[in-house]
């Protein structure tokens, strides 16, 4: 039987924070699994979180057909949220994604690693917005 793990308190607070923001934001756990994104993010990612559900790192990294501004595909490790996850450091970048509604958008993303204790990495938050 699949049992959902209880979320770390830092992730719970990050979700509550995100749910109050008009700024698009998503949250991953320590395994890189996308565990939440807020309503403003739904407009950019093209599908509600309730419909999309949780997804593993490789799944969300591939799902949005992410590419750089020259049109070259970029891997999870090159995305700002991926850098925060893989290298455990904050980073910022501009890239293109194709939302689940099929629309390609240029977005700027800031990814931040979350630590509950100095050595306890618990996940990543990524704040992003669509470039006009």
């Amino acid at each position: 039987m699949y049992v959902r793990r209880h979320k770390n308190l830092v992730l719970i607070l990050a979700r509550e924070f995100a749910s109050k923001l008009a700024t698009p934001m998503f949250v991953t756990d320590a395994d890189g699994k996308l565990v939440f994104y807020n309503e403003p993010a739904e407009d950019i990612l093209g599908r509600s979180f309730a419909e999309a559900g949780e997804m593993d790192a490789e799944e969300w990294a591939n799902l949005f057909e992410t590419e750089d501004l020259d049109g070259n595909p970029i891997s999870l490790a090159e995305m700002p949220a991926g850098v925060a996850f893989v290298e455990r450091r904050p980073t910022h970048g501009t890239l293109r994604i194709r939302g689940l509604d099929g629309v390609q958008r240029t977005i700027s993303v800031t990814g931040l690693p979350l630590y509950a204790h100095t050595a306890e990495f618990v996940g990543v938050v990524a704040v992003f917005w669509e470039e006009s």
Partner: peptide, 19 residues
């Protein structure tokens, strides 16, 4: 246990202290 959210709307794994 919640901040500005309805407790009844959250899945159990997202409720502080539930575990």
């Amino acid at each position: 246990p919640v901040l500005g959210t309805e407790l009844g709307e959250l899945p159990p794994d997202w409720i502080s202290g539930h575990e």
